[in-house]
Design a protein around this nucleic acid. Structure first.
Lengths: 132, 132
DNA sequence: TATAACTCCTGTAGCCACTACAGGATCAAG
DNA sequence: CTTGATCCTGTAGTGGCTACAGGAGTTATA
């Protein structure tokens, strides 16, 4: 059994984040030593690593919790996992599209923005009544 | 002079958001009618529209405030505008790259995730010790 | 004139997923 | 015995809104 700092190091999840996950009920309350310090098992560390990977993949915390429950549920049924992942990947693609539109709009706005320019074309475009 | 609801309609900025901008000092406190209701001029509406365009372009609110100040400052110097925009466009591109990596990782993870699968390959990959 | 429906006011809390303290207790090493 | 690392609880802050609650005033209709 290891302390929270070591569990943090081994899992890549920050100490404060581990405590936050505990408060939020994402992970079960760990054992406590006689001095009231949290004690984590290898299994607990594995769980934290699992959570970190889900979060790194951009899953919302609630989905991450669901995935963890599915993973520990034993059945390992693909169906609900697939659904969550597909919704998420759709969201990711939507965001990419949105950001690409942003990038294009910004490029266009700053196209004639030279350092030597006195009247800034970007500001004047932002001031016009167009674009709703 | 118009009320806040009309200013909201004309600018596309929500009523609560307008009041929030006022609290945060993004826009100056407007005139008040005898009944304590806020009164906005055409100039005020133009300012709100400017803010909305900046926000739609994804600029952080603080940058948006800076752009507004530059726009109203009179000098219309391109230099600081260009700098803000370039930092922002870099951030946007970074985010696009990050999301593309996410998309690829998710696609790979779910590649063999069929509805008929009993042991979910995505869950088992998330459980492995790899990937730090 | 009554009343309903609308708009406005202030102030506060919630969203997401942490992150950063403050203020204190305990522990290990020299 | 001191120093420094680690741990504890509890609270507040981040960004940029958004959603109330609870009340006051305004406008339109019966």
């Amino acid at each position: 059994m290891i302390a929270i700092g070591e569990a943090s190091r081994q899992s890549g999840v920050g100490i404060e984040t581990i405590r936050y996950y505990e408060r939020e009920g994402i992970v079960p309350k760990p054992e406590r030593a006689a001095n009231n310090r949290r004690l984590y098992s290898l299994h607990d560390v594995g769980r934290l690593r699992f959570l970190r990977k889900c979060r790194d993949l951009g899953f919302p915390l609630a989905d991450t919790k669901t995935l963890l429950d599915l993973s520990e549920g034993g059945s390992d049924d693909c169906q609900p996992v697939k659904e969550l992942a597909e919704i998420h990947i759709t969201n990711v693609r939507d965001k990419i599209g949105e950001l690409r539109r942003l990038e294009a709009a910004l490029s266009e706005l700053t196209a004639n923005c030279d350092s030597g320019n006195v009247s800034c074309p970007m500001l004047s475009k932002l001031r016009t009544a167009h674009g709703q």
